[in-house]
């Protein structure tokens, strides 16, 4: 298959940022949501008065199944339209520039029906800024990072679930986003891969990427969290620094969740 030749002409193209003073500079943080509501059939699945995510350690979002964690990530990342309210990135609404500075790994990763390396290369092309040798170098670096170097040419859909999750993660960080949403990124990983991903997340955080991550794994939350946002029935019941949260969560729902007693 003439993959390489065709792939070039099939590279995704992105409209340039509208209006904004051009330069691809300026932080997209903090992320602030105000009056954010997502309603389906009259049910307020997400209903958040105010939530601000600042630069700094990872924000870990916890809460029972169906609390609205994945919906919140989608709303913040601009994949679904809020019924009410706004999300601002350092005072700017979502636009092409803001979009390019952030990425997301879905709870069920979506891999393109291409080879592993073509998946990563696609993200690099979409992000622009990578051309020629620097793109090839970055590609190799990302394959190594995800432990996928041996599978570079394998069709991504034939990867195991855990390998797909690793691919989705390195593809998301391909263009070094400032803001990274992760929806249970280690849910189907073995302990070694989980450890590896956590080390990567630490590294991204140290390099200045803001991590916003959903997990059900309390141990993982303790290892990674700078702060914890707890959700229950579509609402944020608390936003607390990690050390405080695990010792003395302020909301009853969070307290019950930690001790395993929370019933939805």
């Amino acid at each position: 298959m003439p993959d390489a030749a065709l792939a070039h002409s099939l590279e995704p193209r992105i409209a340039p940022a509208e209006g904004s003073a051009g330069a691809d500079t300026g932080s997209v943080l903090p992320v602030s949501a105000a009056g954010l509501v997502f309603t389906v059939n009259g049910k307020r699945l997400v209903d958040i008065d105010r939530l601000t995510l600042r630069a700094g350690g990872p924000t870990i979002i916890m809460g029972p199944n169906g609390a609205g964690k994945s919906l919140l990530l989608r709303l913040l990342h601009g994949l679904i339209e809020a019924s009410e309210g706004t999300v601002l990135f350092n005072t700017q609404p979502m636009n092409a520039r803001v979009r390019r500075r952030q990425a997301m790994v879905f709870q069920r990763p979506v891999v393109l029906r291409r080879s592993v390396q073509a998946n990563i290369d696609y993200a690099l092309a979409a992000a622009q800024g990578y051309r020629g040798p620097s793109r090839r170098g970055r590609l190799r670096e990302l394959l190594e990072m995800g432990g996928l170097a041996d599978m570079a040419r394998q069709r991504a859909r034939t990867l195991s679930g855990g390998e797909q999750q690793r691919l989705a993660l390195v593809r998301a960080v391909a263009a070094s986003p400032d803001l990274l949403f992760l929806d249970e990124p280690t849910s189907s990983l073995d302990p070694a891969s989980t450890h590896r991903i956590e080390a990567l997340i630490h590294r991204f955080a140290d390099e200045g990427t803001k991590i916003v991550m959903v997990t059900h794994d309390l141990g993982q939350a303790r290892r990674l969290a700078g702060e914890v946002v707890f959700m229950h029935r579509g609402k944020v019941t608390e936003q607390t620094p990690a050390n405080v949260f695990f010792d003395a969560p302020s909301s009853p729902a969070a307290r019950d969740f930690i001790t395993g007693g929370l019933l939805v």
């Binding site: 002409s9 099939l10 995704p12 193209r13 992105i14 409209a15 989608r74 990342h77 601009g78 994949l79 092409a96 979009r99 390019r100 990425a103 997301m104 879905f106 979506v110 393109l112 696609y122 993200a123 979409a126 992000a127």
Partner: peptide
């Protein structure tokens, strides 16, 4: 959703 997340417009996603 994945393509949108990567900043690929609806029109640009057609060749993909």
């Amino acid at each position: 959703e994945q393509l949108r997340s990567m900043g690929v417009s609806r029109l640009a996603s057609v060749p993909t």
